[in-house]
Design a protein around this nucleic acid. Structure first.
Lengths: 209, 209
DNA sequence: AATGTTTTGTTGCAATTGCAACATTTTTAA
DNA sequence: TTAAAAATGTTGCAATTGCAACAAAACATT
């Protein structure tokens, strides 16, 4: 069950979804779900797998977000500057769509499940702020080395281990750090040569305090 | 009246503050309000002016946030990695402290003013996410020039004007963009020389489409 | 198992940037 | 008003980085 429905019974969930006039949409693999993100909505991936892809003025396409089952997306929540972004179903995908304005404008302050839902959403948004702050913390470092080390430190603090298992490819890591991939590759080599880290595939071991 | 109390009558506000066990603290100019930000709280500046300052391992102090009257702060909301951060009253300052955990854990889902408060807080957090996304958008640009132009474009889109009035000093802008101040100064000169912008103090005029 | 695709590693080189140091102007506070 | 502090502008230079191009490895798909 999704965090969004924490402390809300199944019966109440049904009522809630009706109250918020939600809809469930299904998309075939490969479909572009344009309209879905044009408006001010919150989406939950119920089944399948989708990506948010940006195409910039040069025609370069970047994957902004990978949306797996259970994940949440929406202009309120992610960086969907709706102009350039597309939501694309990479598999057959089922999405729950909730109108954000309706959540906020609804005057149904007496339904306890509705209020719980708003609270759950608040929890999720504050978690997202934490993540954004982490990324900003990393991006404000001036050198690639410092960005890497900051990324490592945050990971270590979170997981309590010197072993880092990258949740994505090194190419994606370079995107996340907003640095050139080959330059990052070079910096990782230096860190290895200087004995700060060891790497094996996507596993990185920190050898420093 | 603060956004946080939007659609909540003064009478209800009083009840709400009691319900959430808030406290109002006063600090003399120059005081370090350490404890205030150590815990999971939301603070509102009722009067005065304060700063959140980080001191890193090198002893370098950076102003992370400038908190004027009406402004809100807290670990849930800003980037207060509480270890290195201090909240400092720059003038005599009065602060409203709200325990975030109490907001979330309270089961008072029947008080409409409480629910409205949670909703207001949700609005504020989503706005903050937008701001963070903007900054990330800027920070992921690779050159100083592109960072500046992205900053300008976001400003122009928001204010609908080619005149930019910087809300802070150029030194602070360099911090915000996470670039060296003198290098930014140089880049601004190039932009002027190439006819893209004009500047006068903290006013920048965009001369391009 | 064979093929095509994506990821990774590497390197030379040019462009960008940070740093340090200093002069000048503006702002702040006594 | 005046002195001190902060912000701004400038420049040379070294360090870091992005870019391009390529080879090799890993992965995915039929």
């Amino acid at each position: 069950m999704h965090k969004l429905f924490n402390k809300i019974s199944v019966k109440q969930q049904v009522k809630l979804l009706k109250l918020l006039e939600t809809s469930t949409l299904s998309f075939k693999k490969g479909t572009v779900m344009l309209s879905a993100i044009k408006e001010n909505i919150i989406g939950v991936i119920l089944e399948g797998y989708a990506q948010i892809v940006r195409t910039d003025y040069n025609g370069n396409r970047t994957i902004i977000e990978e949306l797996e089952e259970e994940m949440i997306f929406g202009s309120t929540i992610s960086s969907l500057s709706s102009d350039e972004c597309e939501l694309i179903a990479k598999e057959d995908t089922k999405v729950l769509i909730i109108d954000y304005d309706l959540i906020i404008e609804s005057e149904n302050n007496t339904y306890s499940y509705y209020n719980q839902f708003v609270k759950n959403l608040l929890q999720i948004t504050t978690d997202i702020i934490d993540e954004k702050n982490e990324r900003i913390e990393i991006l404000t470092k001036k050198t690639i080395r410092d960005k890497l080390l900051e990324y490592f430190n945050i990971y270590r603090k979170k997981h309590g281990s010197n072993n880092i298992y990258l949740p994505f490819s090194l190419t994606d890591l370079a995107d996340y750090l907003a640095v050139d991939r080959s330059a990052m590759s070079r910096e990782l080599r230096y860190l290895k040569e200087e004995g700060f880290i060891e790497t094996k595939g996507r596993k990185i071991t920190l050898l420093y305090g």
